[in-house]
């Protein structure tokens, strides 16, 4: 028993070292911009860079829009499949997994071929159109995570019976979806939303090839030209991700869809 415990602690220590050591090294290096002493100059340089502010704001707006439209697409779809087309669940799972197996570069080239300025739907013909196309591509990338999160949350509630209960009380579909189902899958929506946020903030391929000023291409640009700012940006990205996960943990405590007492 004691040997097992020691073994478990060694495994945890090894895992933690493997993960934390490079982070500490990155953080330490990001503080070395000023010769001979530690400083936050690299962070100051990043935060005062107008390109950082623009690209970060752009990516945040895109992330919020992706989450909003993603939720509006996926929650009703997952609900309807569970309610009326349960036999299509394997098909849905396969379709939503496709973005994981098709590289982003293939998807974006497909988009450019299909939606270029001389096509029937010329998304890339204008800046707003390209932004819209980029948002749709982010929605595609986040599909596996968002769909699974929402579908898992729906598994914890009895969607069919709740729907029938609401119908028997006179509720129309919109009321059922937004007042009875949506609040009860909020934990899944939130977890999908934060993963989507992290994907959009870090995504390079799609905004780069669609030539939009997102945070991913900015990270690449800085990484290629500067020494101390890239590790500072890596630490900032980590901080944002951890902050998102922290919020997710905090909000999931308020989820009321729990089983009743026997």
């Amino acid at each position: 028993m004691k040997t097992q415990k020691i073994g478990a602690w060694i495994a945890i220590l090894f895992g933690a070292t493997y993960f934390i050591l490079p982070l500490i090294a990155t953080f330490e290096f990001s503080l070395r911009m000023r010769r001979g002493e530690y400083s936050f100059d690299a962070y100051r340089s990043v935060f005062t860079d107008s390109q950082f502010q623009e690209s970060f704001t752009y990516s945040i707006i895109m992330a919020v829009l992706t989450i909003v439209f993603g939720v509006l697409l996926i929650v009703p779809t997952a609900y309807w499949v569970r309610l009326r087309l349960p036999q299509f669940r394997p098909v849905m799972e396969f379709v939503t997994l496709l973005p994981l197996v098709i590289p982003a570069i293939v998807i974006v080239f497909g988009y450019l071929r299909l939606y270029n300025s001389s096509s029937w739907i010329p998304f890339t013909g204008s800046t707003r159109g390209t932004d819209l196309l980029l948002m749709f591509s982010f929605m595609t990338l986040s599909l596996p995570y968002m769909y699974r999160s929402v579908d898992t949350a729906m598994r914890t509630i009895d969607v069919n019976t709740l729907t029938e209960a609401a119908q028997s009380l006179g509720a129309p579909w919109r009321t059922i979806l937004f007042r009875c189902i949506f609040p009860n899958v909020m934990s899944g929506v939130l977890s999908g939303a934060f993963i989507t946020f992290a994907i959009v903030i870090g995504e390079f391929t799609m905004p780069s090839l669609l030539n939009r000023p997102a945070f991913g291409p900015y990270l690449q640009l800085i990484g290629a030209n500067r020494a101390y700012e890239p590790p500072a940006l890596a630490i900032i990205a980590f901080a944002i991700t951890w902050f998102s996960i922290g919020i997710l943990q905090f909000l999931s405590r308020f989820n009321k869809a729990r089983p009743a007492k026997p």
């Binding site: 009895d158 209960a165 119908q167 028997s168 009380l169 909020m186």
Partner: peptide, 28 residues
Amino acid sequence: PNQRNIGMVFQAYALFPNMTVYENVAFG
């Protein structure tokens, strides 16, 4: 079903988990 004005009680209770008792009764 929502046009019939029929009350139904289910085996699995089917109370809305996100609503209080008051809100559940007030729903309809």
